[in-house]
């Protein structure tokens, strides 16, 4: 599968199943555009011009590459040679009006070299549905991972073979197939501690029901926090890095408990050989010198909730008396960032139908001095007045492109900033396991309520259908856990033809549930925006490389 796109003056070609990414000139792009839908052997036939007897894996003499496959008697022949020949002639005729024949041949040879190096026209293996699994012996699913399809022979041809909904009605059979995927040791390595089901703000778009998750207000006792840390260590198997997020509601309402929990976890590090990473998400109201000093010392990341312009922010983020919070929190955030020494911080905003022009909010955050920014589309039922509309989606995609252009411009001016969803690591990104498994919710990551109950994700804590157990008895709803073991890229039918599948890993299950009522559902608007963000992120990478 190939995704070719043009953005911000760059021609990009993404070879989905190898992960290769190429920036190409206009001529090469025109050839790829014409051939991107054809199978590998047809592409080879067209590019070589040897359509009378095309060897699907043999390299023509014109290509110089160390990795060309050896010619053997097992190569298959392409049968529709006349069609291939016509396609080649049609392509050359079309291009000849704009390019010299020698240039066209040179471009085709360059594409041939990439193809023989498995950097273009890579295909999924037809039997295993995933090229990596069959070709590389160092990736052994059978020894390390469970995959129902491999061990139990479950069909992957579109049949509906699984009904793992745990009896709770959160899964529809039509959207998925059975393929469990995850570490066989069942390790839990991350907990989101909802230390406060209470909030000093009353943001109307809050997924947490303005802080108390549609229940009664509660703060997590210190003893529960310590038990949660013990639970995490006990269930972490051989994992070295363990993560604890302090979340809410507003976690600073339970600040002494946060500090004691961190101290307790740190006391276990030398005894257990574990290393804890802590994060904090706050609305900023209660930030003071003590919070700044402690987070600087102990938190690997702090997420600061700020939506942008004052009018934007104060539209939704109000206190219990309906007063906006912008004027209170901005100076506190600026001071926290000014004193920041160790870990990262993100100013994280939400944009809605009311500010689809969110780029202006990003620019405002830059004017305030913030340079690590995240701005996320609201996730809500479609009947909410702030929900994004189909017209908004079109406009937001334009905003994303303008944002990417601004990032390139400011980097060239030596005034760079980061935008969370454009930070694609091409040198040291996630491995194929991680790309298939996704975020790990419900398996290696769980949320803990103030009373110690366990849920698969912080965004599903208000729904009793997702109660998984508690930190004293462990996972008791094993059927639901099994559902989450099946929540991966391989199980999602809708993702199979999507070029971005190995960047989003099937997307956020909680978002899918909130928009479709099905954990395996597809948040169409979310997918469309994600793909645009990936294109923007890749175009920014192209600019970085070509500017050198």
């Amino acid at each position: 599968m190939i995704h070719a796109f043009q953005l911000l003056g760059y021609n990009l070609v993404l070879d989905v199943y190898s992960g290769s990414i190429h920036v190409v000139d206009d001529l090469v792009y025109a050839i790829v555009e014409r051939l991107k839908e054809v199978p590998r052997d047809v592409a080879l036939a067209v590019l070589t011009g040897d359509s009378s007897s095309v060897l699907s894996d043999a390299a023509p003499a014109v290509i110089s590459s160390d990795s060309l496959p050896a010619l053997t008697e097992n190569h298959s022949f392409t049968n529709n040679s006349a069609w291939n020949s016509n396609l080649r002639h049609e392509l050359i005729d079309t291009l000849s009006s704009r390019y010299k024949k020698s240039d066209i041949e040179e471009a085709m040879n360059a594409l041939l070299a990439l193809t023989y190096d498995d950097k273009l026209f890579c295909e999924k293996d037809p039997s295993e549905k995933w090229c990596v699994f069959n070709q590389h012996q160092n990736l052994s699913i059978s020894n390390d991972l469970e995959c129902d399809r491999k061990h139990r022979g479950i069909q992957t041809d579109g049949s509906e073979s699984c009904s793992r909904d745990g009896g709770n009605g959160v899964v529809s059979q039509k959207n998925h197939e059975s393929c469990a995927f995850g570490k066989a040791d069942g390790a839990i390595k991350a907990l989101c501690l909802n230390v406060a089901h209470a909030c000093n703000l009353a943001c109307s778009y809050c997924f947490a029901g303005q802080g108390n998750y549609k229940g009664s207000q509660a703060l997590m006792p210190v003893e529960t926090g310590r038990r949660a840390i013990d639970f995490l260590v006990e269930h972490s198997a051989a994992r070295h890095y363990l993560e604890v997020d302090f979340f809410g509601g507003e976690p600073l309402l339970n600040w002494p408990m946060v500090k004691e929990t961190v101290a307790y976890a740190r006391s276990l590090e030398s005894k257990t050989g574990k290393r804890f990473r802590f994060t904090l998400t706050t609305n900023g109201i209660l930030i003071d010198d003590d919070v700044i000093d402690f987070t600087n010392r102990e938190m690997d990341n702090v997420v600061l909730s700020l939506d942008g312009r004052k009018a934007t922010h104060d539209r939704f983020r109000v206190d219990r008396q309906g007063r906006g919070s912008y004027d209170t929190i901005v100076p506190k955030f600026q001071e926290l960032v000014r004193q920041s020494t160790g870990g990262t911080h993100y100013v994280r905003g939400t944009f809605t139908h009311a500010n689809a022009d969110f780029l202006n909010d990003v620019i405002h955050l830059l004017e305030l001095g913030f340079t690590q920014i995240s701005m996320e589309p609201v996730v809500s039922p479609t009947d909410m007045p702030y929900a994004l509309t189909s017209d908004d989606i079109v406009f937001i995609k334009q905003q994303y492109e303008e944002l990417a252009s601004l990032m390139i411009q400011r980097r060239r001016e030596d005034r760079p900033f980061t935008f969370f969803h454009y930070m694609i690591d091409l040198e040291k990104g996630p491995c194929i396991y991680k790309r298939i498994a996704g975020c790990g919710s419900g398996t290696e990551y769980l949320a803990v309520t103030p009373t110690g109950d366990l849920y698969p994700c912080h965004q599903l804590v208000d729904n009793p259908a997702f109660l998984m157990g508690n930190i004293w008895d462990g996972i008791t709803n094993t059927a639901l856990q099994d559902t989450y073991r099946h929540l991966n890229l391989l199980s999602r039918k809708a993702c199979r033809d999507c070029w971005a599948q190995l960047y989003c890993s099937g997307g956020c299950a909680a978002n899918a549930f909130h928009t479709t009522g099905d954990l395996f559902g597809v948040d169409e608007n979310g997918c469309e925006l994600f793909r645009k963000r990936m294109e923007c992120g890749l175009a920014i990478k192209a600019a970085e490389v070509l500017d050198v």
Binding site: K189, E243, D425, G429, K434, G440, S505
Partner: peptide, 15 residues
């Protein structure tokens, strides 16, 4: 252009 932190899309993460 060979077998990590928990991610929350609301998967740039960096052996």
């Amino acid at each position: 252009l060979r077998d990590c932190q928990t991610s929350c899309q609301s998967v740039n993460q960096a052996q």
